[in-house]
């Protein structure tokens, strides 16, 4: 178990060596973002971090800390005001091709069936559906959507819609999956289910995942490493490796080791003055 404040300053530790062996997938050096002109607001401090191929990284922070902004920079949806950002060794100046993204809202197209929604990325690539049909069926089955492929999104529950959105992000088999608070709008029970399902698919495919959340247990449950952001302008306040065995089970959330990580982060938030009523 390695806990590092400002991790890059202390390169020792088992997890760090592990990470060094895998090729770098996402690399940010001093990425910052300002909004507006003269009286500009700084949304994001200088963020530097490295994400190795196949890692599950969560970015955790209070609302408005710039974690979504940072993810949108990786996705090529926003341009950093400063610093450099590379995905797969290439500077991000437009959305990377080998990437899937899941948003807070499912953003399914209401006029298409679930099946046709899942193929949207293939259509945008102007490729034939044929080679992806088997994969689509597998994804639907994996996320418990088999039999719902002919339904329209308004006929499904929020959890099922978000599952379909994840299938859509995975259909073209991208190596990088960006998730912007994907389960934030769901009820607690559905959220737990989806956490388990996401871990399962991540273990089966070992994609690089960057996961934004403001739920501490969710981040601990899913991640190899958590980057905790400070309030605006967001900076990395803590980089925390989670050394819990996989597959992790929901019941683990009551074990002392799990809680140790959670309280570590909670204490940090308290130090930041986020829970002042306590």
């Amino acid at each position: 178990m390695v806990i590092m404040a400002q991790a890059r300053a202390t390169p020792e530790g088992a997890a760090t060596t592990d990470r060094a062996s895998a090729p770098v997938h996402v690399e940010a050096v001093g990425v910052c973002k300002h909004y507006g002109g003269r009286e500009s607001v700084q949304a994001l401090g200088a963020i530097s971090l490295t994400i190795a191929k196949g890692q599950f990284i969560s970015i955790l922070g209070p609302s408005g800390c710039g974690k979504t902004t940072f993810l949108r920079c990786i996705a090529g949806l926003e341009k950093p005001s400063g610093g450099t950002l590379a995905v797969g060794g290439q500077t991000v100046d437009r959305p990377p091709s080998d990437m899937g993204m899941v948003f807070q809202r499912d953003v399914l197209l209401d006029w298409r069936t679930i099946y046709d929604n899942i193929f949207l990325p293939i259509e945008f690539r102007h490729e034939s559906r044929k080679p992806y049909e088997k994969r689509a069926q597998e994804l639907l089955k994996l996320f418990g959507l088999a039999g719902f492929d002919r339904h329209f999104p308004p006929q499904l529950s929020g959890g099922m819609r978000q599952r379909a959105a994840i299938c859509r992000a995975l259909i073209a088999d991208p190596s990088l999956l960006l998730m912007d608070e994907p389960f934030g709008a769901l009820d607690a029970m559905t959220r737990d289910q989806l956490n388990v399902e996401l871990q399962r698919i991540w273990q089966a495919t070992h994609k690089t995942v960057v996961f934004i959340t403001h739920s501490i247990p969710e981040a601990v449950f899913l991640s190899d490493r958590i980057e905790v952001f400070s309030p605006r302008p967001g900076r990395i306040a803590l980089s925390l490796d989670i050394d819990l065995p996989r597959p992790r089970r929901m019941a683990m959330r009551h074990e002392p080791e799990f809680n140790h990580y959670c309280s570590k982060i909670r204490e940090l938030f308290e130090d930041m003055g986020l829970f002042q009523e306590e």
Binding site: R72, A75, G76, L77, R94, P95, S97, M99, G100, M101, F103, R105, V107, L109, L120, P121, E123, F124, R125
Partner: peptide
């Protein structure tokens, strides 16, 4: 958000117009 989605799919103008 739908336009963001289209952007991450690297959609061309015509694709975005026609499909979204």
């Amino acid at each position: 958000e739908m336009l963001d989605l289209a952007a991450t799919l690297r959609g061309g103008r015509w694709d975005v117009l026609r499909r979204i």
